[in-house]
Amino acid sequence: MKEFLLLFRQADFAYRDLSAEDFRALTKKWQDWAGGIAAEGKLGNKGSRLAQEGKVLKPGGVITDGPFVEIRERLGGFLVVKSDTLEEATTLAHGCPVLETGGSVEIREIVL
């Protein structure tokens, strides 16, 4: 079985503006979704959520605070799933809560 990296991209999302209750509900959505993949035995690595802040290093030692200006969405987190084909991995990505808040999931095979 191959492994695929799911990358969650999202436009700047103001998590801080969420009420405690909404935040809990959103967390639950993520956990239930990832739990569902794990229940199929297809979770390779539970991955991590990434902090909003970051730096980008470019040729010539240019450091920026992030790619926000240039691309619309930024990386919010990742997860590794196990599946035989890219199509199946894409099916697993359905239901990802990031899609409900205007984000996207990028699915890439991990080449060992």
Binding site: Q31, D32, A34, G35, A38, A39, L43
Partner: peptide, 28 residues
């Protein structure tokens, strides 16, 4: 039941087993 569901979600992420997957689905 939501607490139980979240605990099963977390358990599955540490260690998959068919019986945990079934229990998780029941909690769901």
């Amino acid at each position: 039941w939501n607490e139980i569901l979240q605990l099963y979600n977390a358990l599955l992420m540490i260690n998959y087993s068919p019986s945990v997957a079934l229990n998780r689905t029941f909690a769901l």
